[in-house]
Design a protein around this nucleic acid. Sequence first.
DNA 1: TTGCGTGCAAAGGTTTTGCATGGCA
DNA 2: TGCCATGCAAAACCTTTGCACGCAA
Lengths: 145, 145
Amino acid sequence: MEPRSTYKTKQKEILLDYLINRPGEHITAGDVCEHFRSKGSSIGQSTVYRQLERLVDEGVLSKYTIDVNSPACFEYMGKDSHVEKGICFHCKCEKCGKLIHLHCDEMEAIKNHMLEHHGFTMDPMRTVFYGLCEDCSKEQEDSDK
Amino acid sequence: MEPRSTYKTKQKEILLDYLINRPGEHITAGDVCEHFRSKGSSIGQSTVYRQLERLVDEGVLSKYTIDVNSPACFEYMGKDSHVEKGICFHCKCEKCGKLIHLHCDEMEAIKNHMLEHHGFTMDPMRTVFYGLCEDCSKEQEDSDK
DNA sequence: TTGCGTGCAAAGGTTTTGCATGGCA
DNA sequence: TGCCATGCAAAACCTTTGCACGCAA
């Protein structure tokens, strides 16, 4: 988990800066490429992928999987990030596709239960709950009538 | 969720038969193709993908995402499947890659909490918990010493 | 100068799509 | 016969990799 990069490069710097300034957003490698392409200050896509992966290894970013055939999402996990509190997790609505950030102390209880009863050390940041969001549940109820 | 298929085809039949006889296994589209190819009774891969997707829509199969860049997994959810009890869920070890099936009544409590406090109707079959399995946790503790 | 980081292009794996053919009802 | 399902091939999509060049230390 410790930093393994030895060189400080401009690409790494502006990439991290981009992510730090978007707390709570789920950002894909494609988003990053597009952002810098549109600004003219382009970064090669392999560099984007390699740096993102490295930052995840270093614990600076969190990476999570929304869906097969959806690109991986990244999020800054540093000091100012609400994520660091460890009570943030993600819910993905299977109907409208919305990704929801939830803050919940109950998550600690779930984590503890998993560890004590199933020996599984769960990683809340990587875990995505699938289901139906409030709006889509209501819609479904209405259409059932 | 209701059946939308009108025709009964041989391909659909043997595909479903294959999945029904593998309860508790996580099967990919590639597994299916390979299985039938090796048996000589081949099914075209686009048919496999289309039928799997249809069966998921009909509620016959469950589909879940293990990881970006890993193929999607499918599992039969019918009468004899332990999955139907609604207390089965999946854990994926981020270190050794193992996929674990857990049975746990606590899952009901988690589901209820999500619904009551966050308005989110969670789908346990689709949700995969990421983290470290028991063996890998121990290994990590040992190496920390 | 050393060797890590970058960028391009190509490859890799999974899934989707277009279109003509085949098969169910 | 009418229409859906199939199968092949090609495309699409995200990500990884090989290799030569550039730049930080």
